[in-house]
């Protein structure tokens, strides 16, 4: 396995995540797709760290995980709040603000 394979895999994962954001309606799932994008970046970072022989990449990946965790907290809080109000977690239903 070459490095390129890992990178391509990461890129594919990132793309899947991005496309998921575009096509999925449930806010939680959309959020999960974003998490997938973040994790694909982690894979990229670790691959590069491995390739260059530095630890920075791994450290950054750890940071990303922490940040992602924080993001989950905030994100779920917001999504919960809106779910409780609307009884729906579909992002297409939050459509009052437009034009």
């Amino acid at each position: 396995m070459t490095i390129t394979n890992y990178l391509v895999l990461a890129a594919i994962l990132f793309t899947i995540g991005a496309v998921g954001v575009l096509v999925r309606r449930n806010a939680i799932v959309v959020f999960m797709c974003i998490e997938l994008m973040l994790n694909s970046v982690n894979l990229t970072l670790i691959t590069f760290a491995r390739a260059s022989g530095t630890v920075e990449g791994q450290v950054i990946a750890l940071f990303v995980m922490v940040v992602a965790a924080a993001e989950v907290v905030v994100g779920l809080a917001i999504i919960m709040a809106i779910y409780r109000t609307r009884r729906s977690a579909s992002v297409d239903d939050v459509n009052l603000l437009k034009y």
Binding site: G17, A27, F31, I34, S40, E71, I82, V91, V94, N95
Partner: peptide, 21 residues
């Protein structure tokens, strides 16, 4: 307000992912 929050959050996180990549 909640709609604003959820939109901001989802899109903000999406953008963060790009930054991070």
């Amino acid at each position: 307000s909640q709609e604003a929050a959820v939109k901001y959050f989802l899109l903000g996180a999406f953008a963060s992912a790009f930054f991070l990549y």
